[in-house]
Write a protein that binds this DNA or RNA. Structure first.
Length: 329
DNA sequence: GGCCCTCTTTAGGGCCTT
């Protein structure tokens, strides 16, 4: 499956078409040996309240400990939890070194704006990940994330990542996503502080050396990203500086405006799926189903807006942009 | 909470996210 190709004659314009769903990237290649969880085979049981497709119940273990580089004393604890993923067909191992996590902030990254200006092959430095979260409510201050899904648009092995998250509290809005307290408030479902190192390592396994990761979500600016930033902060982690975010909601608004339609015509993910005749795989308002749908909506939106890759990247924002907006007020 | 629109800007309501 490929993104639509937008081409301008005699101009070299990079588009999402460059990110095809087929290349392979093994988690095994980039891992160390301190934190560890396992993604098991794909033929497993369906999850309670999950998808109609082959959702996988994956027992996993996480080893936490000190740095192998500094030879500090290592304390290992095993945390059983379930990682839900639909695409991994072979047994693979992802290990995480906590020192390595802290070094995310020391990697020198390329100047993306300069590369666009110089028309360099920016696709060599970019990873596009569509993501979605399910939460216990709307308030980033008071509510918690209970499910996260990532999909690397490059495709290939391990291109999707999905997990439930233990919020340590009652889930009052199960009627929205069908995720119940019983499903997440369990010792074998990871808490956010346990999950973040795994997420960081997963994303690192997908990114290119010295490159940026573009995270795309619907209403990312006012919901998903502030939630993510808040959870990282609460768990004493920082969003890596090479993580950039793009919100598809303004793209949808821009398109309706271009077509002379009122915004009340619908800019929700549901409305966009109906517009493009995209069917949800599984139930809407489950993270992976929404991610899959948004991945398809994204290619249609960029096609309709005639938006080249550089134009999409130009719409990015960072967590510090959100902070500066807050400070101004 | 941010963005957009309008019966507007010294405001208010609706949409979008769960």
């Amino acid at each position: 499956m490929c993104f639509s190709i937008l081409q301008v004659p005699r101009c070299r314009i990079h588009t999402l078409a460059n990110f095809c769903w087929g290349s392979s990237h093994s988690l095994n290649r980039t891992c160390d040996k301190i934190f560890r969880f396992r993604l098991l085979g794909s033929k497993a049981n369906c999850l309670e309240g999950g998808y109609s497709k082959r959702w996988i119940k994956r027992p996993a273990s996480t080893k936490t400990g000190g740095s192998s580089r500094t030879n500090q004393e290592s304390k290992s604890t095993t945390i059983g939890h379930e990682i839900l993923d639909e695409t991994v067909s072979t047994r693979s191992t992802l290990s995480i070194n906590k020192t390595e996590v802290s070094e995310f902030h020391r990697i020198p990254y390329c100047d993306i704006q300069q590369m666009i200006a110089q028309n360099k092959d920016i696709t060599k430095f970019l990873t596009f990940i569509v993501f979605d979260i399910e939460t216990t409510g709307f308030s980033r201050e008071n509510e918690r994330i209970i499910e996260i899904a990532f999909q690397d648009l490059q495709g290939g092995e391990n291109s999707t990542f999905q997990t439930l998250v233990n919020p340590g509290r009652h889930v009052a809005n199960s009627h929205i996503h069908n995720i119940t307290t019983h499903m997440v408030c369990r010792s074998d479902v990871p808490r956010m502080e346990e999950l973040i190192p795994i997420l960081l390592q997963y994303v690192k396994s997908r990114q290119k050396p010295g490159g940026y990761v573009i995270f795309v979500a619907h209403n990312a600016r006012t919901f998903d990203v502030p939630f993510l930033v808040n959870e990282f902060s609460r768990c004493h982690f920082e969003i890596p500086p090479n993580w950039l975010f793009v919100d598809t909601l303004p793209l949808a608004r821009e398109l309706l405006k271009l077509e002379g339609l009122k915004l009340t015509s619908g800019t929700s993910l549901d409305a966009l799926c109906k517009r493009y005749n995209i069917q949800f795989v599984g139930k809407a308002h489950r993270a992976m189903a929404d991610v899959t749908a948004l991945s398809l909506v994204l290619q249609r939106l960029t096609f309709d807006l005639k938006l080249p890759l550089s134009g999409l990247i130009a719409k990015h924002f960072t967590p510090s942009d959100l902070t500066s907006v807050k400070k101004k007020k």
